[in-house]
């Protein structure tokens, strides 16, 4: 149990750093120096010290949503394997993780609607439009891995893939990974689906929903989204490419596992920064094309598991 709590605390601790890292990479590609990688920590600390302003028209949902989001993320962080494959399996398997994110999305959308501002409603409706295609994609692509390894427990998926060498590597794995990667971009409000760096009315999705939050609530919202990004990266690293993850609990294995997962997250951050620097945000009406492509990819992954 201790190791899971340790993993969870580590994920929460490095989440702002990963966001800072992506910003630093993007600044590098744009030829700027950019803010320090520790800037997200300073932002969060400042927000936590500030008072929050809440509209008198809001209901309890508006106040509860940040805490629900943070709780969902923390629970998911307990279950996603990070540097060891032992995660809190008794809590549930991959379906629980996917629907914890579903709950987070639901409350995010509700709180966007709750304040009654037009931007919030717009953001919520867009988020739901995107998630209609993203959620089945994520489920299908993780299911592909569950089919390959014969278990739905996240820790065991990465364990059996890591220990069996290249035997379980199939074309389905790459299809599922491609689908999952596109969904990660969509779920975490990254380019080409959303632009995390702007507050432009016409384009924003995620930022529109948290527009009304301030102070502590805003800090929790931001922190939970940062953690969600790290969790998705950890899922990508440990489900599709789990090599290097610690199977048994010993100092050496954990050291290697920690190093491996940090390198993988570093690479994913670099990949996201490259994509965000080289692509423009897509028009909202062209988004279904991309998302259907990723959905079909994940469907193909499942189908090709049976065909091939």
């Amino acid at each position: 149990m201790l190791i899971e709590v340790l993993q969870m605390l580590l994920i929460l601790a490095i989440a702002p750093l990963v966001t800072g890292l992506i910003r630093k990479f993007k600044a590098f590609f744009q030829g700027r120096q950019g803010p320090s990688m520790l800037q997200p920590y300073r932002d969060l600390a400042k927000l936590f010290r500030k008072d929050s302003v809440v509209s008198k028209d809001t209901s309890w949902i508006f106040m509860a949503a940040p805490y629900v989001c943070m709780t969902a993320v923390i629970t998911a962080a307990l279950m996603v394997p990070f540097f060891t494959s032992t995660s809190a399996n008794f809590l549930g398997d991959l379906i629980v993780v996917v629907y914890l994110f579903g709950m987070m999305r639901f409350f995010l959308a509700l709180s966007g609607l709750d304040a009654g501002s037009s931007f919030g409603g717009m953001g919520s409706s867009r988020e739901m439009t995107v998630s209609v295609l993203v959620e089945p994609t994520i489920l299908l692509s993780i299911f592909t891995m569950a089919l390959i390894t014969g278990t739905t427990v996240l820790g065991q998926i990465s364990e059996s893939l890591a220990t069996s060498g290249l035997d379980l590597v199939r074309p389905a794995l790459f299809l599922a990974f491609a689908a999952f990667f596109i969904s990660t971009l969509a779920e975490n409000a990254r380019v080409p689906v959303d632009n995390p760096a702007t507050h432009l009315e016409l384009t924003m999705i995620h930022e529109a929903m948290i527009l009304e939050h301030s102070g502590k609530q805003l800090a929790l919202m931001e922190w939970s989204s940062m953690t969600k990004l790290v969790l998705y990266m950890a899922l990508m690293a440990n489900i599709f490419f789990p090599w290097g993850i610690a199977i048994e609990i010993s100092a050496v294995a954990i050291g290697i596992g920690l190093l491996a997962v940090l390198i993988k997250i570093f690479l994913f951050a670099l990949a996201i920064a490259v994509i965000e620097s080289s692509m423009a945000k897509m028009r909202l009406f062209r988004l279904p094309n991309l998302l259907t492509v990723s959905f079909t990819l994940s469907l193909l992954a499942v189908v090709s598991f049976y065909i091939l």
Binding site: P171, A172, L175, T292, V293, L297, L300, S304, L308
Partner: peptide, 19 residues
């Protein structure tokens, strides 16, 4: 063989998706 077959299937879908 499996990998090439998967690439063929993938390009099928990309052909449909490309504009």
């Amino acid at each position: 063989v499996d990998t090439f077959a998967a690439i063929i299937l993938l390009t099928d879908f990309m052909l449909v998706a490309s504009g």
